[in-house]
Design a protein around this nucleic acid. Structure first.
Lengths: 215, 215
DNA sequence: ATTACTATGTTTCGAGTAA
DNA sequence: TTTACTCGAAACATAGTAA
């Protein structure tokens, strides 16, 4: 938490173990040992410098902190209903259309999301820090589970979904594969209609998705 | 936190020490000891019942939890607006180093900014109109107050600081003396490291500082 | 300068158990 | 049943110091 409040979420912070200890009212040795332990647990990444070290939270580290934040948020503000993601749309290589139209998935989309998805996904590259944080928080929610299956010798993994309102106008869903072909800063949306056409979007346009997270 | 998430904020919750321990992956003894300690510190109120005890957070207990919540909120909601200042660096007459390394200031920098400043300041002459406007706006924010003090017959005045991200890489701070030896178009930055060395800067180079103004 | 190891002291934990 | 004490064990912190 101290590292996060010092700014180690966005950029690495350059700090010495003794300064970190001092900031926490602890010794240099304890700060050093804790940094080692956090690194071992994969919660931070470190790089040693001549004067101190560059420290930054990992995705897992931010997630662990998010779990605490979340619990407290529920105490102070009640349940969270939705998270907003903002980013630019871009064209993928058509894998989205392929997966979405697999019958094993399509059937579940219809029964669990309540709509027959248009064969294609809208790819969004998240741009701002808030969206990246919200994307990390989404990992903590259960969402709507789409089960994996096998089809003609291929296996298709399980997928987690969230209902979403896209640009305040279209009801669709966010789909998150356990192992995505994109990085953590990309999300994919589906809807009963062709989102590009319906919303009049082209590559580079900014789109906003409100993700509904029934707890 | 566990007691709060169990509902002990509004109404007392009725619980046994062994159930509380189990909920936290701890023993009955530890849960009991912790309840005693929380009560001693005035963070909870208790009433023993035949089967278990009625436990509720006090005002102080909720306040203590709130302090943690707000710190995390700033990490995740980014409730910190920021202003960008751009300008050319130049060499002063070494006064910066003198002031920064006064123990009366240094101690406060460590406790209030979270780092031990490198003994020297990076002077920036603001070049564009936007930066000059932002510099003026900074006067309106409270910032982080560094108190004045006396040392061997000399008085050192109060200083206002803002945490800052310099060139998107280093976390430091903007320091603004109430009565600066420079004009309104000059700002001074400090950081835990030698900014010139770390960022590879020389006189005349343009540097960008993102000033965080706690809301 | 740093980081981080070793040794030692201190705090925290839980088994056993009294009330 | 409970709560909570005692006490040995485990975890954690810091001083001293090597690299």
């Amino acid at each position: 938490m101290k590292l996060a409040t010092m700014g180690g979420v966005k950029h690495p912070i350059i700090i010495t173990s003794s300064a970190l200890g001092q900031a926490q009212g602890l010794s240099q040795q304890t700060a050093s040992r804790r940094l080692i332990e956090l690194e071992r647990r994969g919660l931070i990444k470190r790089e040693m410098l001549r004067k101190g070290q560059a420290v930054m939270l990992t995705e897992d580290g931010l997630k662990a902190l998010g779990a605490v934040y979340f619990e407290l948020k529920q105490v102070f503000e009640g349940e969270i209903a939705s998270l907003t993601l903002v980013g630019e749309i871009f064209t993928g290589m058509g894998e989205g259309a392929y997966y979405v139209s697999r019958e094993g998935y399509r059937r579940q989309f219809i029964s669990k999301l309540g709509f027959n998805p248009y064969p294609g996904t809208l790819n969004i590259k998240l741009s701002d820090a808030q969206s990246l944080r919200n994307r990390a928080l989404l990992e903590l929610f259960k969402g709507i589970e789409i089960e994996g299956f096998s089809d003609s010798g291929r296996t298709f993994g399980p997928v987690k979904c969230f209902k979403a309102t896209i640009d305040g106008r279209v009801e669709g869903a966010l789909v998150m594969a356990r192992r995505s072909h994109y990085g953590r800063d990309v999300v994919e949306l589906i809807a009963p209609v062709d989102l590009r056409k319906t919303l009049g979007l082209k590559d580079g346009d900014v789109v906003k998705a409100e993700i509904h997270v029934a707890h």
